[in-house]
Every structure is written in structure tokens, then in C-alpha cells.
Amino acid sequence: MLGLKQVHHIAIIASDYPTSKHFYCDVLGFTLQAEAYREERDSWKGDLALNGQYVIELFSFPFPPARPSRPEACGLRHLAFSVGDIDSAIAHLEKHGVKCEPVRIDPFTDKRFTFFNDPDGLPLELYQQ
């Protein structure tokens, strides 16, 4: 058996590091645990935590190519975050200028969810628990 225990982190490459750091930390509520500039790569790396748990490695690289995400491109489809109250979460995002899709109902769980995008168009989901 391989022995996987959990997802360690998710790596995201941002086209504008300060904008994405603001979005993930100040809008979504992640905390910056560590940050480093790697001169040899002209790249920033930030380690972001959610509720004290390391979750996202946020990178910048000069001139990263765009990644297709819609319609249903092969690869990572989206990142989903659970919330207790989807309506208040949507109101918070919209207060910060983040547009959310209309709320849908998961036909298997009857739970409510919506999608929105990070500053680079990465699809993100809110899923009410």
C-alpha cells in the first residue's frame, strides 16, 4: 500500500503575486505563514494556511502561460472550499468585487454550492456543509 495520509498542499502560479496574495489572504481569509523571493527564478513563493493548516503554495513566475480552464479542459477542474453559510460567504465575496455564479444544488447531497474565480481565472467553489 502507498500510505497516502492527506493532501499536503496545492500549488498555484499567479500572474500578479501581490494581487493574488491579497485575494487569498485578505478576501478568502488565508494566512501567510512564510514568504520568500527566489532571485534566480525572479519568483515569489508564499505559504498560505487555512485555519492554521498549510494548504496553498502561491508562486509567481515571469510571464507564465495561460492555462485553459473552460470549457472542461483536461486537468485540475477547480478547488472547493467548505463554508457553513454560503449566503454570507457570497455576500463577503461580492463586497470585495468577486462575482459568484448563481447558487446550485448538488443532486447527490442536496447541498448548495457556487463557483467564482481567483484573479487569474482559476475556478474556485464554495460548498455549504
Score class of each variant (00 low, 15 high):
F63N: 14
F116M: 07
S60A: 14
L93C: 06
A36N: 13
A91P: 04
C74F: 14
Y127A: 05
A80N: 06
H9C: 10
R112A: 09
D120P: 03
G75Q: 07
L58V: 01
S43I: 02
R67P: 02
Q129K: 09
L50K: 03
F81Y: 14
T109F: 15
T109G: 13
L4H: 06
F115R: 03
P62I: 07
D106L: 09
K111Q: 14
L126G: 11
Q129F: 07
G97M: 08
F113R: 00
L2E: 09
D42P: 00
A91R: 10
K21Q: 12
V83R: 00
I56F: 08
L122D: 05
P62T: 07
S60C: 14
L79M: 11
T19H: 05
Q129T: 11
L122P: 04
Y37A: 02
I90P: 07
P65R: 00
Q129Y: 04
V103L: 08
S43P: 04
A49C: 15
G97T: 13
L93Q: 03
Q128K: 08
R77W: 12
H78A: 12
E101A: 14
V55Y: 01
L58I: 02
S69C: 15
A11S: 13
V103Q: 04
F115T: 03
K99R: 12
P18E: 00
G84S: 07
R38V: 15
P18Q: 01
Q128P: 12
Y17M: 10
K5Y: 07
Y54N: 14
P123R: 01
S43W: 01
F81G: 10
Q6W: 13
G75N: 08
D120R: 00
V55P: 00
I56G: 06
Q33Y: 00
I90H: 09
E39I: 06
V98I: 13
P18V: 09
V27Q: 04
E39M: 10
M1P: 09
D16T: 11
V83Y: 02
D85H: 04
V98L: 05
H96A: 13
S15K: 10
K45F: 09
C74W: 09
P65Q: 03
A36C: 12
L2Y: 08
F59A: 10
F30M: 05
